[in-house]
Amino acid sequence: MSEQQDQWRCSQCETYNSGSDRYCIICGGERPTVPVIQQPVMPEKVFQQPKNHFGSRAAGSDSSLFENSYPSYDDDGTSGESYSPVSGSEARSAVSEKTKTADGLSAGRIAVRIMLAAANIVLLIFNIKNLIEVM
């Protein structure tokens, strides 16, 4: 993922460049100054699972495509096989949705906050206990 996010697209020749390149490898165009993550990136190699018999077999071995009988084909023809790569931005948003909550914090950050809160509560109880003893 980070490799994909590090890419940037040259505004002059529209070639994807790696994050380590300051200038476009094709035309010498300078890397934009806006954060790299906001630049368009190359589509990721994420593919939507085919919906039916055709597609799922197509994604696998050709040789086994017709080893079974045919009744599983769609005979009404209204919803045939399909193939769709998921774009980089869609894939990224799908991944980030899994790790985000409503307030936009990642699960990891929430865990850290809970631990800090717990530590603060323990510290508070300890301090109150000390205060009572002193009194």
Binding site: R9, C10, C13, E14, T15, Y16, M42, P43, K45, F47, F54, G55, R57, A58, A59, D62, L65, G77, T78, S79, G80, E81, S82, Y83, S84, P85, S87
Partner: peptide, 29 residues
């Protein structure tokens, strides 16, 4: 369909920014 899908996957893998790549390939009726 299987052959075309294999080709389209390779085009997407080859993307340099200047290949007009497939977005969706499907059958309708």
């Amino acid at each position: 369909f299987s052959g075309r899908t294999a080709v389209y996957k390779k085009i997407i893998e080859s993307q340099t920014g200047n290949l007009v790549t497939p977005v969706l390939f499907f059958r309708e009726r």
